[in-house]
């Protein structure tokens, strides 16, 4: 490749980084953490910001705070239930709308209309109807998560080449066989990418509702830590939640890649 023989470590490091952008990325992240550490240690009031080293050692403290593990469990439960409901509704509505011309003509405009509403404005109504417990968080998560799934399922069903449907039918496939062997495999990739978007929506909806008002979930503790000017615990809790979100997203993304494999 390059003609010059590396003579000293600097050049070798440069070439190594050149071949491994991932390592350089890690370096950028570490540098950001270093800046944060320095800023928090020497320049910013400790009432507002803690250095990452302190946050790292505070994870145990956060989890030992009375009520936090239960709050994390409640939030996780809300996310799981909301996601499950959103997937079921999204799949059923998406199939009904995507598979029939009438459904598409009549329901799709309504779906688009509702999807365009900035749902955050009606959050107080959700709290009013469903209370300040988990039910309102689940409901808000469902309404955020189901629309992307509906759209993806409709798009997936409609992208099936008509010739496949016609040929399957002409070979005598029953309704059920059509669904199982033609529609289902074609729908799976877009269904999973819809699930990924749906998961993003569910996370957003549940966390918004949690932060707005909460008695048992993590929203309660974020406001407690904020009001007590306890940035170490707050950052720890946010980090735990971010990790939870990353794991959930990654799980769905892996599933998406896995189930889209057959196409290539």
């Amino acid at each position: 490749m390059s003609a010059a023989v590396p003579t000293h470590a600097g050049i070798r490091l440069q070439q190594y980084l050149w071949r491994h952008p991932g390592i350089a990325r890690l370096g950028v992240v570490l540098m950001l953490f270093a800046v944060w550490e320095i800023a928090a240690r020497w320049f910013v009031d400790p009432m507002f910001l803690s250095p990452p080293s302190k946050v790292l050692f505070a994870f145990g403290d956060v989890l030992a705070t009375r009520g936090v593990p239960a709050a994390l469990r409640v939030t996780f439960f809300e996310l799981a239930v909301a996601f499950a409901i959103a997937v079921v509704i999204g799949l059923v509505v998406g199939l009904a709308v995507g598979l029939s011309k009438f459904g598409n003509r009549s329901v799709m405009p309504i779906v688009l209309l509702l999807y365009g509403i900035p749902q955050i404005t009606i959050l107080p109504i959700f709290i009013l109807y469903f209370g300040i417990g988990p039910a309102s968080k689940i409901a808000f998560g469902v309404t955020h998560g189901m629309f992307p799934i509906v759209m993806a399922v409709v798009a997936g069903v409609q992208n099936i080449k008509p010739i496949l449907m016609v040929s399957a039918r002409s070979m005598g496939a029953s309704h059920w066989q059509l669904l199982r062997y033609v529609i289902y495999p074609h729908m799976i990739p877009s269904f999973f990418s819809g699930m990924r978007l749906g998961m993003t929506g569910v996370l957003l909806g549940v966390l918004l509702a949690e932060l707005y008002v909460s008695t048992a979930g993590i929203g309660y503790f974020t406001s407690v830590f904020t009001q007590n000017f306890d940035p170490t615990k707050l950052l720890g809790l946010v980090a735990i939640l971010a990790a939870m979100a990353i794991v959930l997203n990654e799980f769905v993304r892996r599933a998406e890649v896995h189930f889209a494999r057959w196409r290539d």
């Binding site: 946010v238 979100a245 990353i246």
Partner: peptide, 15 residues
């Protein structure tokens, strides 16, 4: 971008 950034709101309120 894949992290729900709304999580930063409590931090921003604190800052």
């Amino acid at each position: 971008y894949s992290i729900p950034i709304i999580l930063f709101l409590p931090l921003y309120v604190l800052f």
